[in-house]
């Protein structure tokens, strides 16, 4: 027993890394497609998205970098898709320099899928959505947007004057925006810019999305009603995608189709397996610790 105890006590971390790597690869090759149930947070979010009516303008803020994309992109995908379903007008921007470029990639994929699902609808840049790019300055940008959006954002991401686009015709200031959807990968986003300034100072409803690791700090704002909705990590993003119904029946399940793809399922499975492995290692660590404690007492 002593040898086993010693082995686990001095377990090389590379063995743990190897277990994680093998589990990830095996799950990706052979996914389990575990059932994803729609939680309260995802249901609330769908209601928030459905409160947006035709021709109402919203901001979707991409305040994250490539590192946060695996968790936040599915959220952005679901939000944009639902907004296009609702025939809302979408202004995309970012307080992170990489955000608007990531927004471009995401919206391209959403439009491709959307136009396949709705062949009679065409999503047009400048009419249905626009990318006004990145702006440095954090909360002061919000203060300036409260007076004149077109003064602080004079051109779109590619340098074209934003006044030339139809979508901006009826938009002068922040109060013309129905709601803000802020997807945040850390500081400089939802918590320190959109919530205290757009929501608190100017009264614009804000719904958020964040990575799992930063989620605990956002629940207090949900509870107080300052956040209209919260997608707290990849799991709720997958739930949101499942909750968005498409206008046709899934040929495999014979049920109404949704946005939850096999790829998203695979990632959810990988997350499940990695959580399990971490838990198993924690249990092993604790059994070793408790056994050692008992053994040393006996001696």
């Amino acid at each position: 027993m002593g040898k086993v105890l010693e082995f686990f006590k001095t377990l090389d971390r590379r063995i743990i890394f190897l277990f994680i790597a093998i589990a990830v690869v095996i799950t990706l090759i052979n996914p389990m497609y575990l059932e994803i149930n729609i939680s309260k947070n995802a249901r609330t979010y769908i209601k928030v998205l459905d409160s947006i009516n035709e021709n109402e303008t919203v901001i979707v803020s991409f305040d994250y970098a490539a590192s946060g994309e695996p968790e936040l992109k599915p959220m952005a995908y679901g939000i944009l898709y639902r907004l296009f379903q609702r025939k809302a007008k979408v202004i995309m921007m970012g307080f992170w320099d990489q955000g608007p470029s990531l927004a471009d990639n995401t919206v391209k994929q959403v439009i491709e899928r959307f136009e396949k699902d709705y062949p009679d609808r065409k999503i047009v840049y400048g009419k249905d959505y626009i990318n006004i790019g990145y702006k440095a300055g954090g909360f002061t940008v919000i203060i300036n947007m409260s007076k004149a959006i077109k003064e602080i954002f004079t051109a779109d991401k590619d340098g074209a004057p934003i006044s030339d686009f139809e979508i901006m015709n009826k938009i002068d200031k922040l109060s013309d925006i129905k709601m803000v959807f802020a997807l945040t990968g850390g500081n400089n986003g939802l918590l320190d810019i959109w919530l205290p300034f757009a929501r608190q100072q100017y009264g614009i409803p804000v719904a958020g999305g964040c990575t799992s690791v930063s989620a605990p700090q956002f629940y207090q704002y949900m509870n107080s009603g300052q956040l209209s909705g919260l997608l707290d990590g990849f799991k709720t993003a997958a739930e949101l995608l499942k909750a968005i119904e498409l206008p046709y029946t899934d040929p495999e399940t014979k049920k109404p189709a949704n946005l939850l793809t096999k790829e998203v399922h695979k990632i959810a499975d990988v997350q499940s397996i990695v959580h399990l492995i971490i838990m198993i290692f924690i249990i092993i660590g604790n059994v070793t610790y408790l056994y050692e404690k008992k053994y040393s007492k006996q001696q």
Binding site: L34, I36, G233, D269, S272, I278
Partner: peptide, 11 residues
């Protein structure tokens, strides 16, 4: 929390 945050937990 770890189990509740992933589909395998609810399974």
């Amino acid at each position: 929390v770890m189990l509740g945050r992933v589909p395998i937990g609810t399974s």
